[in-house]
């Protein structure tokens, strides 16, 4: 039992009509770790996250396996999924305003989220909710409980959404671009807080983001998505120190950095949308290392001894 990973995603694919949003994505998340999923728009980050807890619309075709604590939840019944969502896996949405019901008070929404999963009285639930709001550093929890979402600032709303995701004590939190809409100082506080409350409870986090700065600051391991595949998966230090996939390297080089006089190098072209079945490396069209070989098939997964993985036939040499 101890060896069962918290979450195992295996060969997950998501199609919207003819568009392949996610193609054969696999990764595992261990208890208590912060696992980053990074990529540009259209890379398949959110589709992957939503597929994990069955939040995609009916029109999406999902294949593959998602095991949570060893139990298959991909294609599980609504009743099973309802138990997993909230109590097993909490989801923090990007847009806090749409994640909250605008016509009901914060307290009512939090109490309801808890009562669905735990057999507690309304009064007990209210106590838990108020304590939790204090824990996410809301100054006046009682007042917040009786406020409507529009009466709170963006940073406060994001804290409330984090509280709502945590209230039933899940073992895994999926944080879907939680801070992208926030100012940098607020982003900083919200991320700090999310890491702290999750660490206090021993909850693992899947941090979905497009921001490599956020990845470097928060994650233990990272999967880099491009064109719906995992281009590279590695320990965060290995990834930044010695990227093996040309896309990871190019992405790191395209970032302007404070205080470094190295020119930033753009990646030519723009991200692709995969229509039909993917049968080449999705990055080949923008890659300076690409050869004919890259266009024949999706590169196979190479796994190194330390568990590091990448899909590239021209993998960059490890830097010693």
């Amino acid at each position: 039992m101890i060896d069962t990973p918290l979450l195992e995603v295996n060969d997950l694919s998501v199609r919207f009509g003819s568009v392949a949003a996610v193609s054969s994505v696999s990764f595992t998340v261990r208890s208590g770790e912060v696992f980053g999923v990074v990529g540009e728009s259209g890379a398949g980050k959110s589709a992957t996250a939503k597929a994990i807890i069955g939040l995609l619309p009916q029109s999406a075709r999902v294949e593959g396996s998602v095991r949570f604590r060893g139990e298959e939840i991909r294609g599980a019944s609504d009743a099973t999924l309802r138990k997993v969502r909230g109590a097993g896996i909490g989801y923090v949405f990007q847009d806090a305003l749409t994640a909250l019901d605008p016509v009901r008070k914060i307290g009512v929404q939090l109490i309801e989220s808890l009562q669905i999963h735990k057999d507690v009285s309304r009064k007990e639930a209210a106590k838990v909710a108020e304590d939790l709001l204090g824990e996410v550093q809301i100054k006046d929890p009682a007042r917040c409980m009786s406020s409507f979402p529009h009466q709170l600032s963006g940073g406060m709303r994001q804290r409330v959404v984090i509280a709502a995701a945590l209230i039933a004590d899940p073992a895994l939190i999926i944080a879907d671009e939680v801070t992208s809409a926030l100012d940098v100082t607020v982003q900083r506080r919200v991320l700090d807080l999310l890491l702290k409350v999750c660490a206090d409870r021993g909850a693992a986090v899947i941090m979905i983001t497009h921001d490599l700065g956020v990845v470097a600051q928060t994650c233990d391991r990272v999967a880099v998505l491009y064109g719906g595949i995992v281009a590279e998966e590695a320990d965060v230090f290995d990834l930044f120190d010695a990227p093996r996939h040309p896309y990871t390297k190019a992405l790191l080089q395209s970032m302007p950095r404070i205080g470094e006089d190295v020119p930033f190098v753009p990646i030519p072209g723009s991200a692709i949308q995969v229509v039909g079945k993917l049968h080449s490396c999705p990055f080949a069209g923008r890659c300076s290392y690409a050869t004919q070989e890259c266009l024949v098939d999706v590169p196979p997964v190479t796994t190194e001894e330390d568990g590091r993985q990448y899909r590239c036939v021209h993998a960059l040499e490890p830097v010693s």
Binding site: D192, L195, K196, G213, V214, V215, A216, Q217, F240
Partner: peptide, 16 residues
């Protein structure tokens, strides 16, 4: 400046 997330895991400043 302090809140800016530096894209380098060797320069971590987050609370945890």
């Amino acid at each position: 400046v302090e809140a800016h997330p530096v894209p380098d895991p060797h320069e971590r400043t987050m609370y945890v």
